[in-house]
Design a protein around this nucleic acid. Structure first.
Lengths: 123, 123
DNA sequence: GATTTATGTTTACATGCGTAGTTGGATAGG
DNA sequence: CCTATCCAACTACGCATGTAAACATAAATC
């Protein structure tokens, strides 16, 4: 039941499905076109790879193929984040935050948000 | 001056050099052997790829090749983290923390550490 | 009914990665 | 000197990825 690893390009293709599903390949390609310059063929290839990986399913409605995601955006994001934390920060979050802080990669707003978050957690 | 992207296996090979440098290929292979089951040849290949990417340099001392890192561990970690944050969390840290919290991936200690860190930041 | 259109499937091809064998040159030991 | 050894460089090969053309098939249109 582990989440199948999906590539960056595949991610770009599943993303529209997280905003709205189901969608056809053409609809997905249209939405993806804002950020990427792929042909429809490329989007279809990525879709079929996502289907092969069990990350996306389709149902055929007559001639239309309607795609929908099988994994949740947040599940993917968390899985990837854990991978990174494990690899680079011994699995812990605070060293990551510390490094980013040291590089001035944390705005005042970021800090305030995280603090509010944590305060709520221990409430 | 962008940091060259290095692969996971390459990372395992450069890691010993961050602890101690310079080292020979054999010394690196020994240290890497704790976590990976690679032949010496594999380690050498990874080393040469790191050299090609400008992440590692060597100096030859007679017959000995001594390797040393050209990039800093933290620079690499921060670059990778930014990539992930940009891709998955619109470049912001708090949504990452929020997700991890929601998944119970934050221990009491983690939370306390991060809070201490942030408090210090605004001091 | 024949042809164009829509849509997925198959095949392709370059690049990067993980993993390692083979080669060639320097060197140390006899 | 010659040979065995040590080392890096070169070559290799399968798999994933990024990108897409070619192919097949069903449907819509004329």
């Amino acid at each position: 039941m582990a989440i199948e690893r999906i590539s960056e390009s595949e991610y770009a293709v599943i993303e529209p499905l997280w905003d709205k599903a189901p969608l056809t390949a053409v609809e997905i390609a249209d939405r993806v076109a804002k950020d990427n310059d792929w042909t429809l063929q490329t989007v279809k290839t990525l879709l079929s790879r996502l289907v092969a990986k069990g990350a996306v399913a389709f149902e055929t409605q007559g001639r239309r193929y309607l795609y929908r995601p099988l994994i949740a955006r947040n599940d993917h994001a968390v899985a990837e984040s854990r991978r990174l934390l494990d690899r680079l920060f011994a699995g812990r979050v605070s060293p990551l935050v510390a490094q980013l802080a040291k590089r001035d990669a944390l705005s005042e707003d970021d800090i305030a948000e995280i603090e509010a978050l944590l305060k709520e957690l221990r409430a």
